[in-house]
């Protein structure tokens, strides 16, 4: 398979007054086109740092990243919608900033919104939308710049369990349909197994790869259905064992 992203021996150090902290060390990952990968690990281990570096928000200390001309789309922990902009304007934000807004791209965004059940809300404001809908808007805002790889940083953690299940199904469908690849950071093992074909377990600080699981479920379909697969609990247990739990 063709790799669209190669990360080799990534390292990131933070400096504070007291000390130097190694957040990420010796992290390597190759991502195939269309692949969904989850990074799981104890909280505060530096998972988010990897995404921040990949999206260009932070500088890496060492290592190489080969992008193969692929564009990154970053989806944050909160939806971070601008309350003073309409849903459509929120989704067009990235294009406006990049100065790439054309009629054609505007139509594309509107078509995305319509396709994913937000057609009636183009001119509404975010405060009128439910948490799950807001997440969908945030996703479409990310998709508007036509990224090849989606980076998601615990994107549903602010939602209640019900909406969380529903939106992970939605996001899964949208990303598969738009043929995107995904690197997702999560602390929810079930979410990782049900959405991704590869789960990478990360260690405590400094964050390195501890173990990699290739997930293959019988009747692989949607995240909610996948949770019913007979291998699901087996993977869950195995991954659970690998995560460094605080005693």
């Amino acid at each position: 398979m063709n790799n669209i992203l190669n990360i080799q021996n990534l390292k990131k150090t933070y400096h504070t007054k007291e000390k130097e902290t190694i957040a990420v060390e010796d992290f390597s990952l190759s991502l195939a086109d269309g692949e969904f990968v989850a990074l799981v690990g104890p909280s505060g281990c530096g998972k988010s740092t990897i995404l921040s570096i990949l999206s260009g928000l932070e500088e890496k200390t060492d290592g190489t990243i080969i992008y193969q001309n692929k564009k990154m789309g970053y989806m944050l922990q909160t939806d971070a919608l601008f309350e003073w902009l309409t849903i459509l304007d929120n989704c067009l934000l990235g294009l406006k900033i990049k100065g790439e807004l054309t009629d054609e791209k505007r139509e594309y965004v509107i078509s995305l919104l319509k396709k994913y059940g937000l057609g009636d809300f183009l001119n509404s404001y975010p405060s009128h939308l439910s948490g799950g809908m807001r997440q969908r808007v945030a996703l479409i805002r990310t998709l508007a710049i036509k990224p090849d790889i989606l980076l998601m940083d615990e994107p549903f953690s602010a939602l209640d369990y019900q909406s969380r299940l529903a939106i992970s199904d939605d996001v899964f469908h949208i990303l598969k349909e738009e043929k995107k690849s995904l690197i997702m950071v999560t602390h929810d093992i079930a979410e990782a197994i049900s959405m991704c074909t590869r789960v990478i377990v990360l260690s405590k600080r400094p964050c390195t790869i501890k173990k990699e699981f290739l997930i293959s479920l019988t009747d692989f379909s949607t995240p909610i259905e996948n949770r019913k697969a007979k291998e699901f609990s087996h993977y869950y247990e195995e991954i659970w064992k690998e995560i460094d739990h605080e005693s």
Partner: peptide, 10 residues
């Protein structure tokens, strides 16, 4: 988070 978002759009 909003500032982070803006930065992620360069």
């Amino acid at each position: 988070q909003k500032i982070k978002l803006m930065k992620s759009f360069d």
